[in-house]
């Protein structure tokens, strides 16, 4: 009896391992934080781009409308690609765009805006990248759709036309 049970158990164990590896193959191996979670925005002090005014984040996104907070930098190449979509989004007029200038210097950032247009209603800066970490972001470009001080959607990487339609549908 013992002789027969052991091989069966071992075969079953390996079969389970096989199934798990098989399923594991389908998962992406690149980690992205859970992006569909609704979350209250963190309370942070934001520094304005051209003046030295400091504002607490809750006072930026407090109106009864949608906001898109977009983290960008003039040195970031994908940011150039997504810029036209931001301009389109702004043109729709239903949403406030908040720019968050990441690890940039003011001259280059201004040049970038002058060259490609300014979709932002307000721009804030994050010189050393620490505010972005506190916000839970991880790089440029990255965008957060915010409503009533709550993050309802998060886009890691450049906004594309698909994301644009999605945002337009949400804010309708």
């Amino acid at each position: 009896m013992r002789f027969k049970i052991i091989p069966i158990i071992i075969t079953l164990v390996f079969f389970t391992i096989f199934t798990i590896f098989f399923k594991g193959l389908k998962n992406s191996n690149i980690y992205t934080p859970n992006i569909d979670l609704e979350k209250k925005i963190p309370s942070l002090v934001f520094k304005s781009f051209d003046t030295d005014v400091e504002i607490i984040s809750e006072n930026i996104f407090n109106k009864n409308k949608f906001y898109l907070m977009n983290i960008w930098a003039s040195w970031c190449i994908p940011c150039r690609e997504e810029h036209e979509f931001l301009m389109k989004l702004k043109a729709s007029g239903k949403i406030d765009l908040i720019g968050f200038n990441y690890k940039d210097n003011n001259d280059n950032a201004k040049k970038f805006i002058d060259e490609l247009g300014n979709p932002y209603d307000k721009i804030f800066t994050d010189r050393d990248g620490t505010s972005s970490i506190n916000w839970g972001a991880y790089g440029v470009p990255e965008s957060f759709l915010i409503y009533k001080n709550k993050i309802i959607k998060r886009y890691i990487g450049p906004i594309n036309s698909k994301n644009l339609t999605e945002i337009e549908n949400i804010i309708k």
Binding site: F21, L25, N27, Y31
Partner: peptide, 22 residues
């Protein structure tokens, strides 16, 4: 080779190959 793991040492990975070896 299957890319099931995330590593510094990159190899072009492809689930179909992974399936075969598996």
């Amino acid at each position: 080779r299957s890319g099931i793991l995330n590593s510094v040492h990159t190899f072009a990975n492809d689930p179909e190959r992974g399936l075969f070896i598996l």
